[in-house]
Design a binder for these strands. Sequence first.
DNA 1: ATAATCTGCAACCATGCAGTTGCACATGGA
DNA 2: TCCATGTGCAACTGCATGGTTGCAGATTAT
Lengths: 96, 96
Amino acid sequence: MFTALADGTRRAVVDQLAHHPATASELAVRAPVSRQAIVKHLGVLEAAGLVTGERDGRRVVYRFTPEPLRDAAEWMGVVGAEWDERLARLRTLMQR
Amino acid sequence: MFTALADGTRRAVVDQLAHHPATASELAVRAPVSRQAIVKHLGVLEAAGLVTGERDGRRVVYRFTPEPLRDAAEWMGVVGAEWDERLARLRTLMQR
DNA sequence: ATAATCTGCAACCATGCAGTTGCACATGGA
DNA sequence: TCCATGTGCAACTGCATGGTTGCAGATTAT
């Protein structure tokens, strides 16, 4: 999870996909790297469960799936609970 | 931030420090790696603002500082807002 | 059928980084 | 003072990974 989001290019991809689904080629024209690099990044993001790819004819459309963010938020809440009241409330929120 | 938390050893260190402050040597005996490895990790964590080291005589005591977690939580809230109502509420919570 | 477009696979390169070992330096206690 | 303990610095190694290029395979359009 954190590993997947540790890379700036990957966070940019996630930002894009959070707005609207896209293919690797479409993402590549907006990014300063090649299509193949984007494909690899999408592979990492998909392995982390942050993204899912669905074939549509000749294209493969990727969509953002935010579920893993909850796990990360929960961990942050647990670790920060006794140090910050706001994060403690986040923890409660996430556990519901 | 995400880069700092991307490493498992580093997350373990943060977990330890969230419970009670400690020195690099103390952390090293609990971890399966050498003291020098822990020192490097503490350097990364300190650069990310997640930890602060304070000299106390011969020892250097490290403490957990959770402020940067809020930034990460906020980003997660923004990117996930339109996909998950709970993350949207997290976003609101973090912006207060 | 044929050309254009898109994805998938593989090899390859460079850099970063987690980890180790070795040793020097500083500080506290006997 | 002398020794023990703890920290700091540097060099080195192995491996993961972000990036590239080249080409083959599949699908749509002309």
